[in-house]
Design a protein around this nucleic acid. Structure first.
Lengths: 245, 245
DNA sequence: CGCACACTTGAACCCCCTCAACCCAAGTGG
DNA sequence: CCACTTGGGTTGAGGGGGTTCAAGTGTGCG
């Protein structure tokens, strides 16, 4: 795994009168709220890293030494039971901030499911910096609240929805997320495996596969290869996802 | 429902050189981080309310006009599907802060499951106050992160645990919460009905009842009446809750 | 090519849900 | 005082949605 000073696009040039200009994730990122002078302070404590597919870069119950800001790629955040059962509690993509727990240990593990790029912030340094950057703290609070709302929605899914409702909900969630990246409307990309979708939705691989096959034969969706998928009947999917139908 | 100026214990006296002194929840509450002068500002915008059992004081998807700080009693926070299926996303007790969503509408409903006492803060006024009270914002961020961790734990439960593991987890969670209130060690109070426990754990009433009966015949727990329950075999319950056994 | 891994499909099973009956305690009211 | 109601809790019998087990089909990559 390579590590380098932040600001990859400017590596080798003078050390950034305007930091993070090369960062593709800056627009959606939490870093964006602080002004240029403060962003230099942020960049000064950040270390930019490439993380290979399959690499576990946060291990549950390990000491929480760092925060991460994903700038490219996708990671799965998951918890495990002793016998190997796995629950994915979320997928982190460009702009997401990881490690916000108050606890001194991580509450979940994180693994890159496709090549990942992230800024790593030493926990203590960032905590210290937070005291002088109230806008950043405010932005983190907003971000945490947003995640909390999504977590509650996921609890409703896991506790009360049927397999079809879960898969439809997942596709709609991806559809909303896909608005950001550059895909034709009604198309989504699924960088995760069926097993991972199952571990996210509280189902088995087989049930996910069967349900997707059902949707396909009903012409609600179409598999286009390369992990890309077309949502052919958005209104129906939305209705199923919300428990109507 | 009665409403009155905050500081119930001091109602009718001079308006509190030291506000919130009568509040039994102040110790655990988010308000506690701000110093006396700032707490007066907080108390100035707060309205103290008694909320009767069964009263729904937050309605999902309604405009989020207020924040609440629970000072006594218990509320259930829940989401519903159109056909009536219900998922309880948490129980709020003394010291808990509600309504933290960034969104302008509530993301869940809240109902008092026993007589409730809460401080109500107009959203806009509190938001404005937040800008001048960074310690309060910091405390809210901590609180949100803590809730996020608990939500992720609940996702693991809802997605991957068996009925027995869910009930054991619930009992252990209550056991940790009970440490605060004045019950003999190993004893917990369950102010919620079996139906509500089921709606929290993603199970039916019958399954909850059957599982508790099983634990009782195995002498792992004992029902003492009045919603009080003795945990007779904590190590075993803990092991089951974490997926061992 | 051949191996590994992801995905799909089929068949049998099982845990939990559904439906139903019943118990019990607390009101309520004649 | 008892008859009746209501709401929460328990227990039993049967059924079903999703899991488990198993086999087979791609598909990328050394």
């Amino acid at each position: 795994m390579e590590t380098q000073r932040a600001i990859p696009a400017l590596a080798g040039t003078t050390l950034a009168s305007e930091p993070c200009t090369g960062c593709e994730a800056r627009r959606e990122s939490v870093c964006n709220v602080v002004d240029i002078r403060d962003r230099m302070q942020l960049a000064a404590i950040a270390i930019s890293r490439n993380i290979g597919k399959g690499h576990v870069f946060i291990e549950e119950s390990d000491p929480a030494t760092d925060f991460f800001n994903i700038t490219a790629g996708t990671a799965k955040l998951y918890k495990r039971l002793p016998d190997g059962r796995q629950q994915i509690v979320g997928f982190a993509e460009a702009g997401d901030f990881l490690g916000l727990a108050v606890s001194t240990t991580y509450s979940f593990s994180a693994e890159a499911i496709e090549p990942l790029h992230a800024c790593r912030f030493p926990r203590l340094k960032l905590m210290r910096l937070l005291r002088t950057l109230p806008q950043l703290e405010h932005r983190l609070l907003e971000s945490a609240c947003q995640e909390l709302v999504m977590a509650q929605e996921q609890m409703l899914l896991l506790g009360r929805k049927t397999a079809q409702e879960r898969v439809a909900s997942f596709l709609m969630e991806r559809s909303r997320a896909a608005a950001a990246c550059g895909l034709p409307p009604g198309h989504i990309r699924l960088p995760m495996t069926r097993t991972e979708i199952g571990d996210y939705l509280g189902l088995t691989v087989e049930t996910v596969s069967r349900t997707m096959s059902l949707f396909r034969t009903q012409r609600r969706i179409a598999l286009l290869g390369g992990g890309v998928l077309a949502l052919l009947d958005l209104p129906w999917l939305e209705a199923v996802a919300t428990g109507l139908v």
